[in-house]
């Protein structure tokens, strides 16, 4: 088959692939929701205990944990 003299290039990016009722590649990949263990809420450190400015100079491990 011949398409004749090339005239132009077309890039078609369809919004959806033009295939009727496409089957999902993997059957029904329903999201599995694992029972989440009761979240251990980290104890809140009182806001005032942390300096919000440059604190990186605090030596490792020696600070109050």
């Amino acid at each position: 088959m011949e398409i004749g003299k090339p005239k132009r290039r077309i890039t078609v990016n369809p919004k959806s692939v033009p295939i009727p009722t496409p089957l999902p590649k993997f059957p029904d990949p329903a999201p599995v929701r694992e029972p989440t263990p009761p979240a251990k809420v980290p104890e809140k450190v009182p806001a005032h205990s942390t300096s919000t400015s440059a604190v990186s100079s605090v030596p490792n491990g020696s600070g109050q944990a």
Binding site: I3, G4, P6, K7, R9, I10, V12
Partner: peptide, 8 residues
């Protein structure tokens, strides 16, 4: 669709 060469 995709890349297409259009001829006469």
């Amino acid at each position: 669709w995709g890349e297409i060469i259009e001829g006469e």
